[in-house]
Amino acid sequence: MMKSSVYGLLLLLVLMLPPAADFLESIMITHMHMQMPLLVISGIFMAKFFQNRFTGFFSKWNENGVPGILLFSIILVYWSLPRTMDEALTLTSVEVFKFISLPFLGGVPLRDSWPKLSSFWKHALIIFFTILFLALGWLYIWSPVQLCNNYLVIEQITLGWGFISTAFAMVIYLIYSYFMDFSKYE
């Protein structure tokens, strides 16, 4: 189990290497849809370490998983704003905050919360992100102005379609889990 934490840490370190970070941040969509999810995933891998270290903390403060998932959602919403992405590229402090917040305040609570959540909350979360992604997709595609100083309008539109296609995949999943009653098959 601790092995996965080491892999998570390694992934985080690789993502922090300047060539890797520069490459992923050079394209808007890979910045938001590749680097950021990978940071969250590194946190998911590392979560076991914290869960073992601070068992009491997690069971006390994240008993039913809802506080953790709220923290995760806030962090993710924060990083979906064009403004924050721009700042990460210009201000070192914000960049550092990105590499800390996404794994440790996003990935770790997600891993701790997900198994504790009832299926209502799980679906509510996916629905929330579907709506958010559709809205963001709309914003990025049809915004009349350039939203980021660092990225061109064409990149912005590409990212918008990236949001729409991710939302589409989530809709498919929701439809699938609405129509499939897994208890019937098990």
Binding site: I29, Y176, S177, M180
Partner: peptide, 30 residues
């Protein structure tokens, strides 16, 4: 059991297709 979750594989497939096609298609069209 998890090998039977076809819905999940299809979602993974769509996400991967999105990753591969969004950048070039937007470029071709815009």
């Amino acid at each position: 059991r998890w090998t039977e979750r076809w819905g999940l594989w299809i979602v993974c497939m769509i996400v991967l297709v999105g990753m591969a096609y969004v950048i070039p298609l937007v470029d071709f069209i815009v």
